[in-house]
Design a protein around this nucleic acid. Structure first.
Lengths: 372, 372
DNA sequence: CTGAAAGCGCTTACAG
DNA sequence: CTGAAAGCGCTTACAG
């Protein structure tokens, strides 16, 4: 019986397995067995335990369970993002690049629930160098999923020896598995489209964080395909963005202030950047796609609701998260059996979604991505 | 020494406090004391322990620490969102309303880090009725932050007796504290603006989830202010959205298909809804704000980058999360000392950000929200 | 099938 | 100041 009184603040600690055992008239071992479905307990035992559990509203303490069963049912997730003070002005500039990692996390969470796992989220600064906080998170979890390249290859290898680790959009090591999407194929398809279907003569690549593996892969694929398609390829320090709308807008403002000529098409490292570019071009009365075409990467939901609608390379965002979790879960389950196939690089397909910002004409909704 | 061999998959379990004690030639109690800064250990003891810790890369196991110290340093966060299969078409429709709760979570996380806490995220379905999964999450955490009204008042009161609980945008109970923003003041300011400055004669309210306390508060404030300002106030079942862009677009499509007249201004329950409305109106060649004005609520970052730029009521999004965490943390710390002020309703201020979608003329950037 | 007991890896009174 | 020991709340061989 829970004590009820008029003071809401009275603390009633949750019942323990001892309370249940006492109420059911059995040992705590029996309670545990019934709850964990071990070794068919007698019908009557089961009933008494279940009744007591229901009556007391018993739920096992996570820490005790974790310590005893050597399983926390928690996966640590590390996201790399600017650690800014929540001052309005500053934050307003930077907090837009949330959407992509958050959607990936949601894909993880979806799968995690099916296994009874929860996600322990922690973000680290873009420039965080020592991995101490990440090793600490590992001790609160059964395994780790790391967005981006937050650790050096050496650190990763060492971490992967202690605990199962899956990276996202990074590089596999001998002890860790990586999951990413096919930047190369997606970017090449996009550039081929700009050259072939639209006949543009020049494109620029507006980059994301310079050290992001995704950014590097997209840049290189764009450069190679541009060369193969005979396009002039513009890039360089003045084209350096930061995956955020504000970064994209800043690049455009800078170029216009310098009086630079814009290329016929601007290929952005991601959709957020493209949003900033569209905005800045709009402010200066430059028509998209009439004067300058603009494309994104990721295909986040809002891309469909911009004007003009944003042409973008679709990443299987939620799938990335789901796959990362499934992979990690397999590693955790097999941990006891030791030897497992580490060092893999799992690549998920991408696909070009043509909308108006690249110069294509509007099409009926619903046909997106179904084009040949 | 960590075993190194050529097989990356070899598992090297993390060192325990016993390993450290052995290496340092002291008892595990001393190790614990040095690490937790208790009762000034002798200089030499401290040095030996610290050296061993560094050498072995020791980090205490979270579960063992939690069980022993009765503190997990984990806060559970429950978000209410549609639990859909990651099928593209379906997800594409619904996963846009992520941004707002995710930004709140980020505000929490920012503060949580300073206290050495992590967030354990779990989402439950919009229509989840029984709170079992939430009570289970409570056993993995030191306290809970609940977005929205995910539990009945009775369940909340009961939960709050077992563990510290803070709700967001809900209603306080005798055992829980609520944090929300001032929907009423923000919405009234907005409607007053539409009536007073722009002289519109009619407005509609395009709603969010019908049972969301935020939605109810915004609806009622809009209705009251409309009445006081002598505006015709349009609403009803055909104006029922779902906080998502797709929902907003669907409402507009439905109205136009019925041949209904649109009011002079559409006040949306949140920004995501407004994005869908802008899009649908654009598809039908209806000029915003010339023919119909549109406003949002929340002021998410992308609102600034739409065309026309979206007029919206700014909620202190990150502050909501930060305040929720700070409040919960205070409750956790004082848990031992029992009696605490529960039942509070903490209200954060809102503010109208006028941009072009309501009919205001463009202004210099940087002056947003600084108008009288 | 069930109970008594050991043990998971820590923290913290309790002695010395 | 430091160590030996108890205890946190579970799970799981080990006996019976």
């Amino acid at each position: 019986m829970v004590t009820t009184d008029n003071n809401g603040a009275t603390v009633t600690p949750p019942p323990t397995i001892y309370d249940v055992a006492r109420a059911a008239g059995v040992s705590i071992a029996s309670v545990s067995r019934v709850l964990n479905g071990q070794r068919n307990p007698r019908e009557e035992t089961r009933d008494r335990v279940l009744r007591a559990v229901a009556e007391l509203g018993f739920v096992p303490d996570g820490a005790a369970r974790a310590l005893s069963a050597r399983l926390k049912e928690v996966v640590g997730v590390v996201v790399r993002r600017p650690q800014l003070l929540p001052t309005e002005g500053v934050f307003a500039d930077e907090d837009e690049n949330l959407q992509f990692p958050d959607m990936i996390n949601r894909g993880m969470e979806f799968v995690a629930q099916r296994y009874g796992y929860d996600l322990l989220i922690r973000s680290v600064d873009l420039h965080e160098s020592d991995g101490r906080r990440i090793f600490a998170l590992a001790r609160k979890s059964d395994g780790l999923i790391l967005h981006d390249q937050v650790l050096s290859a050496d650190q990763l290898t060492r971490l992967g020896r202690q605990v199962p680790v899956v990276t996202l959009a990074a590089t596999p090591t001998p002890t860790t598995v990586n999951v990413r999407s096919d930047n190369q194929a997606g970017m090449r398809e996009l550039v081929r489209h700009l050259a072939g279907e639209h006949g543009y003569g020049s494109i620029a690549y507006l980059g994301g964080h310079w050290d992001s593996p995704d950014n590097v892969a997209r840049f290189e694929a764009a450069a190679q395909q541009a060369a193969e398609s005979g396009l002039e390829f513009v890039h360089g320090p003045q084209w350096q963005g930061n995956y955020c709308a504000a970064g994209g807008a800043r690049v455009i403002e800078g170029l216009l202030a310098d009086g630079s000529d814009l290329p016929r098409a601007i290929v952005c490292a991601n959709d957020q950047t493209a949003i900033g570019v569209l905005y800045a071009l709009g402010q200066h009365g430059i028509d998209v796609p009439g004067q300058v075409a603009v494309t994104g990467f990721d295909d986040i939901p809002v891309a469909r609701h911009l004007s003009p609608r944003l042409t973008s390379v679709r990443q299987p965002i939620q799938d990335l998260g789901a796959t990362a979790f499934e992979t990690l879960h397999a590693m955790i389950s097999q941990a006891a059996r030791d030897q497992q196939p580490r060092g893999r690089d799992i690549v998920l397909p991408t696909r070009l979604n043509r909308r108006e910002s690249c110069g294509c004409s509007p099409e009926r909704p619903g046909t997106e991505g179904l084009l040949p």
